[in-house]
């Protein structure tokens, strides 16, 4: 029995280790914690360009994570926090770019190309059918 208890304890201890690598943060509610997680995963670290705030260990990422935590606990909305980051680090920090004239091609380009492809595909098929209809 003690063996089972001990092994259970050891496994539980092992599971806590990854979470200990991050800063210890306390949240007012579970919702705040979820919001924090989603924000730090969606904001890009301005120092190490291919990591988000959650993954990066650079000094500035630690500071910005703290800032996000602080602002959430202050009752700021996600929108306000994102605005705060964009005002300081530019749209660069958004892993999900905003819909604007500058990002129009980025967001809608694939759909426009897909539409063009469908039109060309359809017109080629129609043309071929007409040809076949004429020859037979």
């Amino acid at each position: 029995m003690t063996f089972v208890r001990w092994s259970f304890l050891l496994i539980a201890l092992g599971l806590t280790l990854p979470s200990m690598a991050e800063e210890l943060m306390s949240f007012g509610s579970a919702l705040n914690q979820t919001r924090y997680q989603s924000l730090v995963e969606e904001l890009r670290c301005p120092k190490c360009q291919n990591q988000n705030l959650a993954d990066s260990g650079s000094g500035i990422a630690v500071d910005l994570r703290e800032q996000v935590h602080h602002m959430i606990e202050q009752g700021k909305t996600d929108q306000e926090i994102v605005e705060y980051m964009v005002a300081r680090y530019g749209e660069f920090v958004l892993y999900r770019p905003r819909h604007s004239s500058a990002t129009f091609v980025l967001w809608y380009g694939p759909f426009i190309l897909l539409g063009l492809g469908v039109i060309i595909f359809a017109s080629v098929i129609i043309a071929n059918r007409k040809k076949r209809g004429l020859s037979s």
Binding site: K47, S58, I60, L64, Q67, R88
Partner: peptide, 12 residues
């Protein structure tokens, strides 16, 4: 604390 640095958008 680095708060002014964040306001200036400093990364290091």
């Amino acid at each position: 604390m680095g708060h002014f640095g964040v306001d200036m958008g400093v990364t290091g």
